[in-house]
Design a protein around this nucleic acid. Structure first.
Length: 356
DNA sequence: AATCCGGGGCT
DNA sequence: AGCCCAGGATT
């Protein structure tokens, strides 16, 4: 039996019951694929369900505000996905009359859709013969074929993509693609793969040469850097109710277009006196208008390429005496409507009484 | 071709 | 404490 037939046979007995597998609507499949980029099914499933409930079709997604979409995306990470998804929805409405493009070449032109996602949509929704090459596929093929070219290099991806094109089942590309990914996710796993009961073990190069635990090869990534954040939680006790200053992160870097607080970053934690001498501080306050200050515990927030250590400084002002350029003054009861990074969300949960 | 972009779960 | 995840955009 050929590779594809064996994988599909395995899939029909072992596949999970997932909502995006019950539809051929390219819009719903697209949403699921973007959610699942670099994200495990278990983590993305609830987000997918909330997204398609709120935006059951591309017109509703295109009509939404970016803030609302980011709020639904909050906590999932890689927020560029949400912004690109929003832009793509508007493009589908304006340039395709709301009909999802039906060829690989048109699909891949949409923002946030690369080779993997275009192949996934083309094969799942339109049964077009384009192989998906994701982390699962690269692991399965590198083991099955005994390929030790590092898969996080252009060369390795090119090599495995060529084999994926050879192996694709032209009669049943959609199920073939689902099957090989599911096989990688459930059976040919990164650690402790189920080789003993693997239907491919007699043909698997890695198993036959005892190299399963050495494949796929990956080059080491460089280590992360540490950053120190001093967040200024500026509370303004106005007659109309308490307010707080938020900032939209519009510059480059992490958490673009999410909201946080005024920030003083340095190479280490600084004392309160040192913070008062920074230009960020001086531009916001004069000393006599501060009524109260408190300091939070230290948060350690681990990202893929950086470790952020953050402290939150509560600063209570009795009333608004000047403009805060580049910032937004928001009523405390409305803060929960703004999309914020996980770190900010955790702080606001722990120190909810600061913002009551 | 290398680097950046989140957050969570697993070992 | 690393590694990995239904990757894509940017440099």
């Amino acid at each position: 039996m050929k590779f594809s037939e064996q994988i599909i046979k395995w899939y029909r007995y072992n596949s999970r019951d997932l909502p995006w597998r019950k539809t051929s609507d390219p819009y719903l499949i697209w949403i699921s694929e973007v959610v699942l980029q670099q994200t495990r099914v278990d983590q993305g499933l609830a987000y997918y369900n909330r997204l398609v409930e709120r935006f059951p079709n591309v017109h509703l997604l295109a009509a939404a505000s970016e803030d609302e979409l980011l709020k639904l995306w909050q906590g999932l990470g890689y927020y560029t996905r949400a912004r690109n998804m929003h832009a793509a929805a508007r493009k589908i409405v304006s340039e395709h009359g709301g009909n999802f493009p039906a060829t690989y070449e048109e699909i891949i032109k949409l923002p946030g859709i690369g080779e993997y996602t275009a192949s996934a949509i083309a094969s799942f929704a339109f049964n077009l013969s384009h192989p998906v090459v994701d982390g699962n596929v690269m692991r399965v093929l590198s083991r099955f074929l005994g390929i030790d070219t590092p898969i996080n290099t252009t060369e390795g991806k090119k090599q495995l993509s060529a084999y994926a094109h050879k192996f694709i089942n032209r009669e049943n590309p959609g199920e073939h693609n689902q099957a090989i990914m599911e096989f990688g996710a459930l059976h040919c796993t990164p650690r402790n793969p189920l080789c003993d009961k693997c239907p491919l073990k007699y043909e698997c190069r890695a198993f036959q040469t005892d190299k399963v635990n050495d494949l796929p090869v990956k080059l080491k990534t460089r280590s992360q850097q540490e950053r120190y954040f001093h967040y200024l939680v500026v509370r303004i006790n106005n007659a109309s109710g308490p307010e707080v200053i938020l900032r939209k992160r519009s510059e480059k870097g992490i958490w673009k277009n999410l909201y946080d607080f005024p920030l003083i970053e340095d190479k280490a934690f600084r004392s309160q006196q040192q913070l008062k001498e920074t230009t960020t501080w001086k531009n916001m306050f004069s000393l006599d208008e501060i009524k109260q200050m408190k300091t939070s515990k230290v948060y350690s927030h681990q990202l893929s390429h950086q470790l952020i250590k953050a402290r939150f400084q509560l600063i209570v002002l009795s009333g608004l005496s000047k403009q805060f350029n580049g910032y937004q003054v928001v009523k405390n009861k409305d803060v929960h409507n703004y999309p914020v990074p996980r770190l900010i969300d955790q702080f606001m949960t722990d120190y909810a009484h600061w913002l009551e």
